[in-house]
């Protein structure tokens, strides 16, 4: 007995495999989780300005746009990019992954690189100091001497934690939080004076989340020996890495990445550089 449903499923399967041959570029062929489709993970939720409205499928937001550009260079058209959500923990746990690459402002570090693979960097971020108007009125200045005396906070799972020690080296132990929302709450409650974020996130939080939020200053990427560079995260030894690096480098060369930065990331030249 052949049900109409089965027939339809068969037809669908055939059409998928037919288009597969067209979509996948030569480099990525046979290396993805699902043949002919590039599966990309983002955060849950994904934050502005990296992904607009938590909807990466729209291609809006810096990371969403970069994702589609990279996929395009690799030969996957927009219909052959599929999105999943994955936490950082899921990305580093041993065992099979449900994504080809995971893209959520992961900073490339040597320690992490021992356990997972990173693509070539698609963005180099300045670090920025998020604070409030009250603190600025209280006399906080964008100088290291002034910053050291503040009570600091950061999101625990980011490289802002070691950067804080490296760049500012505050007098008192920093407070650490689960996510941006909690850092903002602590700032609002006056429990911390300032928090360290990558510049786009700091600008977003100051504008939208924190009442009277101010970005007091930035540490340009050149300031640290180990600047904050974002890479796509992959399982250690993933053969796709080569193809992805190729695509990212090509986008860098032809100026696409710079254009996307200009489109999606706020103008950062107005933020004073910390002395």
């Amino acid at each position: 007995m052949t049900s109409p449903l089965k027939l339809m499923a068969l037809a669908a399967a055939l059409s998928v495999s037919a288009s597969t041959a067209l979509a996948a570029g030569p480099c990525a062929t046979g290396k993805t989780l699902h043949d002919g489709t590039l599966t990309i993970a983002t955060g849950n939720p994904a934050y502005f300005p990296w992904v607009i409205d938590d909807a990466p499928e729209s291609g809006k937001g810096f990371e969403a746009a970069v994702a589609y550009a990279v996929a395009g260079k690799m030969g996957f058209d927009a219909d052959h990019v599929s999105w999943v959500r994955a936490s950082f923990d899921e990305s580093i746990q041993p065992g099979a992954k449900n994504f080809d690459v995971n893209m959520q402002q992961f900073s490339i570090t040597a320690d992490r690189d021992k356990v997972v693979d990173f693509s070539a960097p698609y963005y180099t971020s300045a670090m920025a100091v998020l604070t409030t108007k009250q603190i600025v009125e209280g006399g906080a200045k964008p100088t290291l001497d002034s910053l050291r005396k503040l009570k600091w906070g950061a999101q625990a799972s980011t490289t802002a934690v070691p950067m804080l020690v490296g760049l500012v080296n505050p007098d008192s132990d920093p407070m650490l939080y689960n996510d941006n929302a909690d850092v903002s709450a602590a700032l609002q409650a006056g429990q911390i004076d300032a928090a360290l974020f990558d510049l786009p996130t700091a600008l977003f939080l100051a504008a939208v989340t924190v009442n009277d939020g101010v970005v007091l200053g930035q540490f340009p990427a050149e300031r640290s020996t180990n600047p904050d560079q974002f890479g796509m995260l992959m399982e250690e030894g993933n053969p796709l890495k080569f193809c992805i690096d190729e695509a990212i480098n090509a986008l860098k060369q032809d100026g696409t990445l710079a254009k996307l930065e200009a489109t999606w990331l706020a103008e950062s030249t107005g933020v004073p550089v910390i002395k």
């Binding site: 799972s157 650490l176 911390i192």
Partner: peptide, 23 residues
Amino acid sequence: LSFIGPVEIFRQAGVFKSLLASF
């Protein structure tokens, strides 16, 4: 208590987990 800032042992472990990509 680490949820509201204090860096006690599990928070510190979480920081290390994140930096070293290891459980």
